[in-house]
Amino acid sequence: MPYEPPTHAVERSLRATTGAKVVAGVDEVGRGAWAGPVTVCAAVTGLRRPPEGLTDSKLLNPRRRAEIAGTLESWVTAYAFGHSTPDEIDRLGMTAALRLAAVRALETLPVTPEAVILDGKHDYLGAPWRVRTVIKGDQSCVAVAAASVLAKVRRDGMMAELGARHGPFAFHDNAGYPSPVHRAALAQHGPTPHHRLSWAYLDALPRWKHLKRPRVAPVEQAELF
Rank of each mutant, 00 (worst) to 15 (best):
E4A: 13
E4G: 03
P5D: 01
P5S: 06
P6E: 02
T7H: 14
A9T: 09
A9L: 09
V10L: 12
E11Q: 13
R12N: 10
L14C: 11
R15H: 12
T17A: 12
T18L: 10
T18R: 13
V23K: 14
V23I: 15
A24D: 04
A24V: 05
A24W: 02
A24L: 04
G25L: 07
E28Q: 04
R31K: 13
A33T: 04
A35M: 01
V38M: 07
V40M: 10
C41K: 06
C41S: 07
A42G: 13
V44A: 05
R49P: 01
P50T: 05
E52P: 04
E52M: 10
T55E: 05
K58N: 09
L59D: 04
P62T: 07
R63P: 06
R64W: 12
R64D: 10
R65C: 04
A66M: 06
E67H: 03
E67Q: 09
A69G: 14
G70R: 10
L72S: 03
E73G: 15
V76I: 10
A78H: 13
A78G: 09
G82N: 09
G82E: 14
H83A: 05
P86M: 10
P86Y: 05
I89L: 05
D90S: 01
L92N: 06
G93L: 05
M94I: 15
A97S: 07
A101E: 00
V103I: 12
R104V: 00
R104M: 03
A105N: 10
L106E: 01
L106V: 11
E107Y: 07
L109G: 05
P110R: 01
P113V: 11
P113G: 15
V116I: 15
D119M: 03
L125V: 02
A127F: 03
W129N: 10
W129S: 12
W129M: 08
R130I: 13
R130N: 14
V131E: 02
T133C: 15
I135L: 14
K136T: 03
Q139N: 10
S140H: 13
S140G: 04
S140V: 14
V142T: 14
V142W: 11
V144C: 00
A145V: 00
A146Q: 07
S148W: 03
V149T: 12
A151V: 11
V153W: 02
R154W: 07
R154Q: 08
M158Y: 14
G163Y: 04
A164F: 07
A164M: 11
R165L: 15
H166W: 14
G167D: 10
G167R: 11
P168K: 09
F169N: 02
F169L: 08
A170S: 12
F171T: 01
H172S: 13
D173T: 11
N174G: 07
Y177K: 02
V181H: 08
V181S: 10
H182C: 07
H182R: 05
A184H: 04
L186V: 00
L186P: 00
Q188D: 14
P191W: 03
H194A: 08
H195N: 02
A200L: 06
Y201D: 10
L202A: 00
D203A: 09
D203R: 08
A204N: 09
L205R: 06
R207W: 00
K209P: 04
H210L: 08
L211P: 09
K212V: 00
V216L: 13
A217Q: 14
E220D: 15
Q221W: 11
